[in-house]
C-alpha cells in the first residue's frame, strides 16, 4: 500500500538520522536506512537514496562524522557517528518535535470536537 505511506516532512529525515546514530552508534548508510524503516514499521515513504543528501548535510554542519570501514559482510562502507555537537542539536530537535507533536495533537483534537458539536 504505497499510497498510504507517510511522506517525509522537510527536516524530519535529519532528526531521524541523528536519533538513529545516537541510539545505535556508528552505522553505514544502508544500516541507517534499514533501521529507520524498521522503527517506523515501514510506514514511511523513504527513498533510501535521499539519506545520503541528509548525511552530507549533517556532516557539513559538524553534527556527525564519517570514517571508512568494513561492513559485516566485509564490504567497504562509510560509517557515520554522532558528534557531541550533534547530540546537543538532537536534544534541541527532540524537544522541538515533542512540543510540535503535542500542539498538533491538541489543535487537531479540538477541531474534531467542534466538528462533532456542529
Amino acid at each position: 500500500m504505497p499510497e498510504s505511506k507517510l511522506g517525509l516532512l522537510q527536516g524530519t529525515l535529519d532528526v531521524m538520522v541523528l536519533q538513529t546514530l545516537a541510539a545505535m552508534g556508528p552505522q553505514h548508510g544502508y544500516g541507517i536506512a534499514r533501521r529507520i524503516e524498521q522503527v517506523s514499521g515501514d510506514e514511511i515513504l523513504l527513498n533510501q537514496g535521499t539519506i545520503y543528501a541528509s548525511l552530507v548535510r549533517l556532516q557539513q554542519r559538524g553534527w556527525i562524522r564519517a570514517k571508512w570501514g568494513a561492513s559485516e559482510n566485509k564490504r567497504k562502507a562509510r560509517f557515520y557517528s554522532i558528534t557531541p555537537k550533534g547530540r546537543v542539536r538532537l536534544g534541541q530537535d527532540v524537544a522541538y518535535w515533542r512540543r510540535l507533536a503535542g500542539v498538533m495533537g491538541r489543535v487537531l483534537a479540538s477541531r474534531v470536537q467542534e466538528n462533532g458539536n456542529a
Binding site: 527513498n47 533510501q48 537514496g49 543528501a53 548535510r57
Partner: peptide
C-alpha cells in the same frame, strides 16, 4: 533506493 541520478543530484545540492 529510488533514482540513483536523483540521489546524486540531491547529494550535490546538499553538499
Amino acid at each position: 533506493f529510488g533514482g540513483v541520478e536523483a540521489a546524486r543530484e540531491q547529494h550535490r545540492e546538499a553538499r
